[in-house]
Design a protein around this nucleic acid. Structure first.
Lengths: 148, 148
DNA sequence: CTAACTGTAGTCATCGTGGTTACGAACTAG
DNA sequence: CTAGTTCGTAACCACGATGACTACAGTTAG
């Protein structure tokens, strides 16, 4: 019902982990990264673009070019990656308001406030982990999702 | 880039708040609710269906039928609503794995674990608020989203 | 120069999301 | 009992987000 069909964060974490592990100390082409993440090379470059602008990774054109980490894997929190890719987009969904409904307007601002609070909560949770943690398996165990 | 284009949670919160406020003590038709939330009546019924099965709301067919809260507005946390509508769907996006990649498989399980952790964090945050809080404006102030 | 890469702009197929219609069942008023 | 409401649900459709794919210009090592 509410499946987040956006894979950019997952691909970013995958690629960063790959760069920190299998490709440590050298440059990996977007072609190589795309095979690891099982996506398109162009998509890899699109996802990595904002991370490069933020200084998390470096890229070089030409032969023997490619991508490499521009920071230590321990210094890159997943929160940072998530914020970069999420931008200011809503985490929960927001519905179009009815300007004619006074009650509706209040609910709109409440939902917006809630969205920010939830975004902060997500960032806080993701801030507990780094790319290095993912590489070394230091992430919470995958327990079955508990029901409501 | 990662806009959550699913409005079910927002609509549910809107409708529940309306039921607790403007429609307190009576039954409101999905038509009336749909006008308040600025969506389609059928969509209202679709969103409310799981909430009814969970005992949050009641519905009656026939003339003078409609929807009403089946629990106190103070007893319905937004976390409960969110869990009901989110189900076990991923909060972050997950990408298709490459079964041939040993590193990829580890990252898959790490991402799944992270998704559960984030879902719990979201639920914890939303658990701090109830429908009554939304109705009375007791939600966090809408501060501008802070950058990464 | 040539081969290997990135950067980016397009185009396209697929799928999630909601709007809309339709119709049967349930219920109330008269 | 009949007429008018309202829910429940299926079916179909339009729109938009997503990511694959192609193409091509710019860059760099050998």
């Amino acid at each position: 019902m509410a499946r987040s069909s956006n894979t950019q964060f997952a691909v970013a974490v995958h690629v960063l982990t790959y760069l920190a592990g299998a490709a440590a100390g050298r440059a990996a082409s977007s072609d190589e990264l795309s095979e690891s993440a099982n996506v398109n090379p162009v998509y890899v470059r699109r996802v990595l673009a904002p991370l490069r602008e933020a200084g998390l990774v470096r890229s070089r054109s030409g032969a023997h070019g490619g991508w490499e980490l521009a920071a230590g894997a321990e210094d890159v929190t997943l929160a940072r990656v998530w914020r970069l890719l999420q931008g200011t987009d809503p985490v929960l969904g927001l519905h179009g308001p009815d300007p004619a409904c006074p009650v509706g307007r209040d609910i709109q601002s409440a939902l917006t406030a809630l969205d920010h609070a939830v975004a902060d909560a997500v960032a806080t949770e993701l801030g507990r982990f780094t790319v290095h943690d993912v590489l070394t398996g230091r992430v919470p165990a995958a327990e079955p999702r508990r029901g409501p």
